[in-house]
């Protein structure tokens, strides 16, 4: 490559770098800086070093939120991914019915998160919602989903699955479409069963789409605020208060911004660690 070509390439790349620096790197640095100070009511009250981090790491509320986040994120990931994958396999062929079904399945994903969560909240409500009618048929008519800690978490996971399985379906369907049909035809000629084709052909060839889907979903679930804020409000008794909801409350309701920024940094690091771990796991699986 000539020097002038390299310079042109760097120049073309520069706008993206500037945008990334302004919208991602700079806020991260500012957040990290704030996390070392006692910031209350939008005012810096003094340098506290790592006190905010220590306070977070020793807080029982944060520990509870960490546990809640883990349950929600992995529960939502498992159900959303499974349903998304099942839909992708089911609707893989481009028949008229399947195209129509794909459009129908996409409807929850098209609805704004806030609106979707509010709709579900009304459906879950025992006093005025549809859940007594639905659960009543199974003899559970008097159940109050949102007033029970376990059921509220189930409702939250369902909210995520209901909305985001269509997104998983799109990503995985794109992966399935990229597999040459000749491979499936050859496998069938060789007498391979459907299960064999799935495990030995589909899964290995979909490794990258699966990795992308899992990482994208996991990061989304760890960082989502709308579902718990609108649907359950973190309750009852903090049983659905995720880390991000706790951070939101500390920052914008309690006005303890230094601590909220420290938690934001820790969540960011946690996200990075998760992504790195998933990449490692998939790389190892590729070698097997």
């Amino acid at each position: 490559m000539r020097a002038s070509d390299a310079r042109s390439a760097y120049l073309m790349f520069l706008p993206v770098l500037i945008i990334e620096a302004a919208l991602v790197v700079a806020p991260l640095i500012i957040s990290g800086w704030y996390s070392l100070y006692n910031v209350r009511y939008f005012k810096i009250r003094g340098f506290v070093g790592f006190d905010n981090y220590w306070h977070i790491l020793t807080s029982s509320s944060v520990l509870n939120s960490l546990f809640v986040t883990a349950i929600f994120s992995f529960g939502a990931l498992i159900f959303t991914f499974t349903l998304g994958f099942a839909l992708a396999l089911w609707l893989q062929k481009d028949t008229a019915t399947n195209v129509a079904m794909r459009a129908i399945v996409l409807i929850p994903y098209m609805i704004a998160m806030l609106v979707g969560s509010m709709l579900l909240k009304w459906i879950y409500a025992r006093e005025s919602g549809l859940s007594p009618m639905i659960f009543g048929a199974f003899g559970f008519g008097d159940v109050s989903i949102l007033a029970d800690p376990q059921l509220a978490m189930g409702g939250l996971v369902f909210n995520a699955m209901w909305r985001d399985s269509a997104f998983a379906m799109i990503l995985l369907l794109a992966g399935l479409k990229s597999v040459p049909v000749q491979i499936f035809a050859a496998a069938r000629v060789d007498g391979a069963s459907r299960l064999y084709i799935f495990w030995r052909i589909v899964m290995p060839l979909l490794r990258i789409p699966i990795l992308i889907t899992v990482i994208r979903l996991l990061i989304h679930f760890i960082n989502t605020l709308t579902f718990p804020l609108v649907l359950t409000g973190g309750g009852p008794a903090n049983s659905t208060e995720t880390l991000v909801l706790y951070m939101f409350r500390r920052g914008f309701q309690d006005s303890v911004l230094g601590e909220a920024n420290a938690l934001a940094i820790l969540i960011f690091v946690g996200n990075m660690v998760f992504v790195a771990m998933l990449l490692l796991i998939f790389r190892k699986a590729q070698r097997l």
Partner: peptide, 12 residues
Amino acid sequence: TPKEAIAMTSDD
């Protein structure tokens, strides 16, 4: 008061 009150917002 119904038990569901613990999950109700003021507006609800």
